[in-house]
Simulated assay, not measured.
Amino acid sequence: MRRMVLALYLLAQVMTLSAGAPIFPSRYGEIAKCKVVDTAMYEVSYKIVAKLYTDPKYRHLGYTDVQTLLIGKRISATYSKDILRLREVADEERKRGAELITNYDGITFPEDIFKGYPSSKELTSSYRLFAGAGYGRYTEPKPNFGWEILPETKNILGYKCQKAKGKFRGREYIAWFSSDIPRSDGPWKFCGLPGLILAVQDTRGDFVFTCTAIENKKSTPIRFWTYPHIETTRDKLRHIILRMHKQPIVFCEQALGEKIYIGNTNKNRDFSFEWLWLEVE
């Protein structure tokens, strides 16, 4: 079977038949294994609505997530809010000596992005791979979206926002930013405008980010993960991710060093599913 509607949910659950999951260090990554690199001045929440397929037959399939953007004086970080919360829960369970940790069986945006780290002109991406396969990490220069600022304006959460359009690695974007919040930042890798980006989406409608809340912060730590990662380059990680989606069961078996069985018949092991990443190129 080439496509399985719940393929991603299946892979999130392949290692458990109960409400818990065996403790794999790479399952969430321990929140205690981090270093604090800055302190947030703002905490911004974005709702993400993302598609899973380009095929018109499957365009209705997608997922939603909430992304937290923490903006410090030098560094900002974006995390999946659910994964960040479950890292905290899992750490508490580990401290209590639990043999199982709470599992998450939903779909989340797979990248944590650290802008301004390790240097002001760079960013670092931490990418969650399937099941116990771990995390890939790479550093690259901050992106240039070639923004063109347009005259159109609208209000978002009471802030006056101005429209801009840009391009980056195979996609065109429409963004709305507010100069009332003079931080050149936004969700994921988005940056480079004279104000905080409160809404942005690609013109195909595959990924839509919408700000839902902005809070002033004074003491929230910005954590950079120090648990084990595959240290690599973006191009090499891209090949790993493509292989992971082409043969997900084989990929996870190789990562875990054991067989994965699907139900009683163990059929449909050769399915694959399309991989939509924001970066087409």
Results as ranks from 00 to 15, higher is better:
Ala50Trp: 09
Phe177Leu: 02
Leu276Tyr: 00
Asp91Val: 05
Val89Asn: 08
Lys121Arg: 13
Ala90Ser: 08
Ser178Trp: 08
Lys165Gln: 14
Tyr58Gln: 04
Val49Asp: 15
Tyr138Ser: 09
Ile31Val: 13
Tyr138Trp: 15
Pro187Ser: 04
Trp277Phe: 10
Ala164Cys: 05
Asp270Ile: 10
Lys267Gly: 05
Asn266Tyr: 05
Ile181Met: 05
Gly186Ala: 11
Gly263Asn: 06
Ser125His: 11
Ile83Lys: 07
Ile71Thr: 12
Gln254Leu: 12
Val250Glu: 15
Ser126Ile: 14
Lys57Tyr: 03
Thr68Lys: 13
Ile260Ala: 04
Cys211Thr: 01
Asp55Ile: 02
Trp147Met: 11
Cys34Thr: 02
Gly170Arg: 09
Pro143Ile: 12
Ile101Pro: 00
Glu99Val: 07
Trp176Phe: 14
Asn216Cys: 06
Thr78Ile: 12
Tyr42Ile: 11
Gly186Pro: 15
Ile83Asp: 10
Gly166Thr: 02
Arg3Gly: 14
Tyr104Pro: 09
Arg59Leu: 03
His245Asn: 14
Ser76Arg: 14
Ile260His: 05
Arg2Tyr: 03
His229Arg: 08
Tyr135Trp: 13
Asp55Ala: 06
Lys73Arg: 13
Met244Leu: 07
Asp82Met: 11
Phe145Ile: 06
Ile249Tyr: 06
Leu150Pro: 02
Arg204Pro: 00
Thr64Gly: 03
Ser120Thr: 10
Arg234Cys: 04
Arg204Ala: 08
Asp185Thr: 12
Thr233Val: 00
Arg238Lys: 12
Lys167Phe: 08
Ala12Pro: 02
Pro194Asn: 08
Ser184Cys: 06
Ser125Trp: 13
Glu99Trp: 09
Pro143Ala: 08
Thr64Ile: 12
Leu242His: 08
Trp275Glu: 13
Thr68Glu: 02
